[in-house]
C-alpha cells in the first residue's frame, strides 16, 4: 500500500518544489516588509499592515480569484509579465508558487516582525556609535539576532504552502504534472471512484513531509539559537 505510483511521485515532487520556491521567493520581501513594520515610522503604515494580513483573513478562493484577475493572461500584471519576460503564471506551477507565497506571506512577516521587535533597538544605537552605518548595523546586529524568528517564519510559510489548496486551485486549477500539488491530488482522488487507496497514500505522504519539515526546522532552530543565543 505504501508503494507510491508514478503520479504520486509527481505530485510530491511538485508540492515540495512549489513550497520551496514560494518560501525562498517570498523571504527577502517578507524580511524587508517586517523590518519596515517593526522599525520604521511612516504614513500609511497601518494600511500596509492590513494589506499584508489580508490573505490571512480572506477566503482563499477569493485570493485565488483576485490573483487570476491580476495575473491571468489577460490580467494587467499577467499580460505585462508575459510580454516583457515571457513569464506565464496562470495554470503553471509558477502560478501555484505565487499563490502559495501570497498565502504564506502574512505568517512569515508576522513571525519575522515579532523577532525584530524583540531585538533591543539600543544595540543598533551602540553599533552606530561605533561608526557602523545603519544598513551595516542592521545586517550584522539586528538581522542575526532575529534569525530564529526568520527561520520560524520560513517554516510557517513552507507548511502553509505545502497545504495550500483554495487559492491554488482557483488560480491555476489542478493540472496533473503542472499544478496538481498534494492537496489537489488528494482532493482529486477522493472525487474519483475507487480512489480511496490513492487518497490514503497521499495523505500519509503529506503527513511524512510535514513531520520531516518540522524536524528539519527544529534542528536548524537549535543550531541558530546556539549561534546567536549567547551561550558561553
Amino acid at each position: 500500500m505504501l508503494e507510491l505510483s508514478p503520479d504520486d511521485w509527481v505530485a510530491l515532487r511538485l508540492s515540495v518544489k512549489v513550497a520551496c520556491v514560494a518560501t525562498l521567493g517570498a523571504l527577502p520581501l517578507a524580511i524587508a516588509v517586517a523590518t519596515l513594520l517593526a522599525r520604521a515610522r511612516f504614513p500609511g503604515k497601518t494600511l500596509v499592515d492590513a494589506l499584508v494580513h489580508l490573505p490571512l483573513v480572506m477566503p482563499p478562493v477569493v485570493t485565488g480569484y483576485l490573483l487570476l484577475l491580476a495575473f491571468g493572461r489577460r490580467g494587467p500584471i499577467g499580460e505585462w509579465l508575459e510580454s516583457t519576460f515571457g513569464l506565464v503564471l496562470s495554470f503553471r506551477w509558477t502560478g501555484a508558487a505565487l499563490a502559495c507565497a501570497v498565502m504564506g506571506f502574512p505568517l512569515m512577516v508576522r513571525a519575522i516582525r515579532l523577532s525584530i521587535e524583540a531585538v533591543d533597538g539600543r544595540l543598533a544605537a551602540a553599533a552606530a556609535t561605533l561608526g557602523a552605518p545603519p544598513l551595516w548595523s542592521y545586517a550584522t546586529v539586528t538581522l542575526p539576532l532575529a534569525l530564529p524568528g526568520v527561520l520560524a517564519g520560513a517554516v510557517l510559510c513552507f507548511a502553509k504552502a505545502l497545504g495550500e489548496f483554495g487559492a491554488t486551485i482557483t488560480f491555476v486549477s489542478s493540472i496533473p504534472g503542472e499544478t496538481r500539488t498534494l492537496p489537489s491530488a488528494i482532493y482529486a482522488a477522493t472525487q474519483t471512484p475507487g480512489g480511496d487507496e490513492s487518497a490514503m497514500r497521499l495523505t500519509l505522504v503529506a503527513i511524512a513531509v510535514s513531520v520531516a519539515a518540522l524536524a528539519l526546522s527544529e534542528w536548524l532552530a537549535r543550531r541558530v539559537r546556539r549561534a546567536v543565543g549567547g551561550a558561553p
Partner: peptide, 20 residues
Amino acid sequence: LPPHRRQVGMVFQDALLFPH
C-alpha cells in the same frame, strides 16, 4: 551628523555588548 559619522564613543550603563 548621524551618530555613525561622529567618532564619538559611548559606553552604556548596561554595556550593550552584541550577544551573538
